[in-house]
Amino acid sequence: MRPHVVAQLAISLDGATSGFDVDLARFYALATLWQEDVTLVDAATIVAQENEVRAAPRRGTRADGPLLAVVDDRARIQTWDALRELGYWSDVLALYADRTPPRPPDATTRELVTGYEDVDLLEALTALGRRGVRTVRVESPTLTSTCLDQELVDELALLIHPVLTGGEPWYDTRRLNLQHAGTEVFKDGVIWIRYCVHPECR
Protein backbone atom coordinates (compact mmCIF):
# COMPACT_ATOMS: atom_id res chain seq x y z
CA MET A 1 0.00 0.00 0.00
CA ARG A 2 1.41 3.38 -0.96
CA PRO A 3 1.78 6.26 1.53
CA HIS A 4 -0.52 9.27 1.84
CA VAL A 5 0.71 11.80 -0.75
CA VAL A 6 0.37 15.54 -0.17
CA ALA A 7 1.23 17.98 -2.97
CA GLN A 8 2.11 21.48 -1.75
CA LEU A 9 2.66 24.40 -4.11
CA ALA A 10 3.00 28.18 -3.96
CA ILE A 11 1.09 29.83 -6.79
CA SER A 12 -0.11 33.26 -7.97
CA LEU A 13 -3.75 34.27 -8.35
CA ASP A 14 -3.61 33.23 -11.99
CA GLY A 15 -2.12 29.85 -11.16
CA ALA A 16 1.54 30.41 -12.08
CA THR A 17 4.32 28.90 -10.00
CA SER A 18 7.01 31.45 -10.98
CA GLY A 19 7.31 35.17 -11.67
CA PHE A 20 6.61 36.31 -8.10
CA ASP A 21 8.26 36.29 -4.68
CA VAL A 22 7.21 33.24 -2.71
CA ASP A 23 6.80 33.57 1.06
CA LEU A 24 9.18 30.68 1.69
CA ALA A 25 9.17 31.02 5.48
CA ARG A 26 5.40 30.58 5.56
CA PHE A 27 5.48 27.84 2.92
CA TYR A 28 7.87 25.68 4.92
CA ALA A 29 6.24 26.50 8.26
CA LEU A 30 2.96 25.16 6.87
CA ALA A 31 4.75 22.15 5.42
CA THR A 32 5.70 20.99 8.92
CA LEU A 33 2.03 20.32 9.68
CA TRP A 34 2.17 17.07 7.71
CA GLN A 35 5.30 15.79 9.44
CA GLU A 36 6.21 13.98 6.25
CA ASP A 37 8.45 10.96 6.25
CA VAL A 38 9.64 11.71 2.71
CA THR A 39 10.03 14.92 0.71
CA LEU A 40 9.69 14.05 -2.98
CA VAL A 41 11.13 16.35 -5.68
CA ASP A 42 12.33 16.01 -9.25
CA ALA A 43 15.87 16.42 -10.51
CA ALA A 44 15.08 19.71 -12.29
CA THR A 45 14.21 21.33 -8.95
CA ILE A 46 17.57 20.33 -7.46
CA VAL A 47 19.62 21.13 -10.58
CA ALA A 48 18.17 24.65 -10.64
CA GLN A 49 19.54 25.19 -7.12
CA GLU A 50 22.85 23.33 -7.35
CA ASN A 51 25.04 26.44 -7.06
CA GLU A 52 23.20 27.48 -3.90
CA VAL A 53 23.43 23.95 -2.52
CA ARG A 54 27.19 23.85 -3.09
CA ALA A 55 27.67 27.21 -1.34
CA ALA A 56 25.35 26.52 1.61
CA PRO A 57 26.76 25.62 5.05
CA ARG A 58 26.90 21.88 5.71
CA ARG A 59 25.18 21.38 9.06
CA GLY A 60 25.07 17.60 8.86
CA THR A 61 22.10 15.28 8.61
CA ARG A 62 19.00 15.91 10.71
CA ALA A 63 18.18 12.70 12.52
CA ASP A 64 14.48 13.52 12.95
CA GLY A 65 14.09 15.05 9.48
CA PRO A 66 12.35 13.52 6.49
CA LEU A 67 14.14 11.57 3.79
CA LEU A 68 14.77 13.54 0.59
CA ALA A 69 13.85 11.38 -2.43
CA VAL A 70 14.74 12.76 -5.86
CA VAL A 71 13.35 11.44 -9.14
CA ASP A 72 16.55 11.45 -11.21
CA ASP A 73 16.06 9.02 -14.09
CA ARG A 74 18.81 10.74 -16.15
CA ALA A 75 21.35 10.82 -13.27
CA ARG A 76 21.66 14.61 -13.40
CA ILE A 77 22.28 15.29 -9.70
CA GLN A 78 25.91 15.95 -8.78
CA THR A 79 25.42 17.30 -5.26
CA TRP A 80 24.11 14.31 -3.28
CA ASP A 81 26.63 14.71 -0.45
CA ALA A 82 25.92 18.44 -0.12
CA LEU A 83 22.16 17.83 -0.09
CA ARG A 84 22.55 15.22 2.63
CA GLU A 85 24.53 17.64 4.79
CA LEU A 86 22.29 20.71 4.48
CA GLY A 87 20.62 20.01 7.81
CA TYR A 88 17.06 19.55 6.56
CA TRP A 89 16.92 15.82 5.83
CA SER A 90 17.85 12.59 7.55
CA ASP A 91 19.31 11.20 4.30
CA VAL A 92 18.91 11.30 0.53
CA LEU A 93 17.53 8.66 -1.83
CA ALA A 94 18.01 8.59 -5.59
CA LEU A 95 15.03 7.28 -7.54
CA TYR A 96 16.40 5.77 -10.73
CA ALA A 97 15.05 3.70 -13.63
CA ASP A 98 16.61 0.67 -15.32
CA ARG A 99 17.87 2.87 -18.19
CA THR A 100 19.38 5.54 -15.92
CA PRO A 101 23.04 6.13 -16.93
CA PRO A 102 25.62 4.25 -14.84
CA ARG A 103 26.68 5.88 -11.59
CA PRO A 104 30.30 6.24 -10.45
CA PRO A 105 31.55 2.98 -8.91
CA ASP A 106 32.31 4.79 -5.64
CA ALA A 107 28.83 6.36 -5.34
CA THR A 108 27.44 6.08 -1.81
CA THR A 109 23.96 7.49 -2.35
CA ARG A 110 21.13 5.09 -1.56
CA GLU A 111 19.14 4.06 -4.65
CA LEU A 112 15.67 2.77 -5.47
CA VAL A 113 15.35 1.55 -9.07
CA THR A 114 11.88 1.26 -10.62
CA GLY A 115 10.57 1.49 -14.16
CA TYR A 116 12.49 1.09 -17.41
CA GLU A 117 12.98 4.41 -19.25
CA ASP A 118 11.45 6.53 -16.48
CA VAL A 119 10.93 6.06 -12.76
CA ASP A 120 7.70 4.20 -12.01
CA LEU A 121 6.24 6.52 -9.38
CA LEU A 122 3.55 4.13 -8.19
CA GLU A 123 6.09 1.35 -7.74
CA ALA A 124 8.49 3.73 -5.97
CA LEU A 125 5.79 4.98 -3.59
CA THR A 126 4.63 1.44 -2.89
CA ALA A 127 8.21 0.40 -2.11
CA LEU A 128 8.52 3.35 0.28
CA GLY A 129 5.27 2.30 1.93
CA ARG A 130 6.68 -1.17 2.50
CA ARG A 131 9.61 0.49 4.26
CA GLY A 132 7.27 2.16 6.75
CA VAL A 133 6.78 5.52 5.03
CA ARG A 134 3.33 6.90 5.82
CA THR A 135 3.36 10.45 4.41
CA VAL A 136 5.08 11.85 1.32
CA ARG A 137 5.06 15.56 0.49
CA VAL A 138 5.60 16.64 -3.13
CA GLU A 139 6.52 20.26 -3.82
CA SER A 140 7.74 20.33 -7.43
CA PRO A 141 5.10 21.69 -9.90
CA THR A 142 6.09 19.35 -12.74
CA LEU A 143 6.28 16.32 -10.49
CA THR A 144 2.98 17.27 -8.85
CA SER A 145 1.33 17.40 -12.29
CA THR A 146 2.73 13.97 -13.13
CA CYS A 147 1.52 12.53 -9.83
CA LEU A 148 -1.94 14.02 -10.39
CA ASP A 149 -2.09 12.57 -13.90
CA GLN A 150 -1.28 9.16 -12.42
CA GLU A 151 -3.84 9.61 -9.61
CA LEU A 152 -1.16 9.39 -6.93
CA VAL A 153 -2.05 12.55 -4.98
CA ASP A 154 -4.42 12.36 -2.01
CA GLU A 155 -4.27 15.95 -0.80
CA LEU A 156 -3.48 19.25 -2.55
CA ALA A 157 -2.37 22.34 -0.60
CA LEU A 158 -1.96 25.68 -2.38
CA LEU A 159 -0.39 28.82 -0.90
CA ILE A 160 -1.93 31.50 -3.12
CA HIS A 161 -0.11 34.84 -3.33
CA PRO A 162 -2.09 38.02 -4.20
CA VAL A 163 -0.31 38.75 -7.48
CA LEU A 164 -1.07 38.30 -11.18
CA THR A 165 1.89 37.21 -13.27
CA GLY A 166 0.39 36.55 -16.68
CA GLY A 167 2.15 33.20 -16.62
CA GLU A 168 0.81 29.81 -17.58
CA PRO A 169 -1.37 28.04 -14.97
CA TRP A 170 0.48 25.09 -13.45
CA TYR A 171 -2.35 22.59 -14.08
CA ASP A 172 -5.90 22.35 -15.36
CA THR A 173 -7.57 21.56 -12.03
CA ARG A 174 -10.96 21.21 -13.74
CA ARG A 175 -9.83 17.66 -14.45
CA LEU A 176 -9.85 16.89 -10.73
CA ASN A 177 -12.66 16.09 -8.34
CA LEU A 178 -11.47 18.38 -5.55
CA GLN A 179 -13.16 18.38 -2.16
CA HIS A 180 -12.52 21.51 -0.08
CA ALA A 181 -10.75 20.66 3.19
CA GLY A 182 -9.85 24.04 4.68
CA THR A 183 -8.91 27.67 4.03
CA GLU A 184 -6.88 30.19 5.98
CA VAL A 185 -6.46 33.85 4.97
CA PHE A 186 -3.42 35.74 6.25
CA LYS A 187 -3.28 39.49 6.91
CA ASP A 188 -1.09 40.15 3.89
CA GLY A 189 -3.67 38.59 1.57
CA VAL A 190 -1.93 35.25 1.12
CA ILE A 191 -4.43 32.38 1.15
CA TRP A 192 -3.73 28.82 2.18
CA ILE A 193 -6.29 26.42 0.78
CA ARG A 194 -6.37 22.64 1.01
CA TYR A 195 -8.30 20.09 -1.02
CA CYS A 196 -8.83 16.37 -0.86
CA VAL A 197 -8.21 14.87 -4.27
CA HIS A 198 -9.74 11.59 -3.11
CA PRO A 199 -12.56 11.45 -0.53
CA GLU A 200 -10.54 8.96 1.57
CA CYS A 201 -8.02 11.69 2.44
CA ARG A 202 -10.40 13.33 4.93
Rank of each mutant, 00 (worst) to 15 (best):
V71G: 04
T108N: 09
G132C: 10
L121V: 11
P105I: 12
T183K: 07
P101H: 06
D42K: 05
V41T: 08
I193W: 04
T109L: 07
E168Q: 15
T165V: 10
D118F: 10
L143Q: 07
V185I: 15
W89H: 10
A44M: 11
S90M: 04
R131P: 00
D106W: 11
L24H: 12
P57F: 09
T39D: 07
S145M: 11
E155N: 02
V71D: 01
V190M: 02
T135K: 05
V5W: 07
T17A: 15
S12M: 03
R54Q: 10
T142H: 05
V138I: 13
R175W: 05
L30I: 11
E123L: 10
S18K: 14
L125H: 07
Y116F: 06
R134A: 13
P169K: 14
R202A: 14
Q8S: 09
R130H: 12
L93V: 01
R103Q: 14
R54K: 13
G15A: 12
T39K: 14
L33E: 14
L40T: 01
N51S: 15
R58E: 09
A43N: 09
D98G: 00
L86K: 04
A25E: 15
V92R: 07
L93M: 04
A82Y: 11
L68E: 08
V163E: 08
L83A: 02
T61D: 00
W34K: 02
T173R: 15
L9D: 06
V71L: 07
T45A: 14
P104V: 13
R59M: 09
A43H: 08
E36Y: 00
L24P: 00
H198F: 10
T142C: 00
N51V: 15
A48D: 14
V70N: 09
V47F: 04
P57A: 11
T114G: 00
A29R: 14
R137C: 06
E111R: 13
L156T: 09
T142W: 02
Q35C: 03
D149N: 06
L164A: 06
S145K: 15
V92G: 02
T165I: 11
R130S: 07
V6N: 04
L9N: 08
G129A: 06
S90R: 15
G15R: 13
V113Q: 09
A48F: 08
T135H: 03
T39H: 15
P141M: 12
E50Y: 10
R175C: 03
Q8W: 02
L33C: 02
R26G: 14
T165E: 10
T142Y: 01
F186M: 09
V22G: 02
L122E: 13
I193N: 12
V197R: 07
V53Y: 06
A127G: 01
D106R: 13
D106V: 05
L83C: 05
T79Q: 08
G19A: 11
L156M: 11
H4R: 15
V163W: 06
V5M: 03
I77S: 03
W80V: 12
V190N: 04
L95A: 08
P66E: 01
D120I: 00
R76S: 12
V22E: 11
T39N: 10
D118Y: 09
L67A: 05
D64N: 12
T144V: 12
D106N: 14
T100G: 05
D172V: 09
I77Q: 02
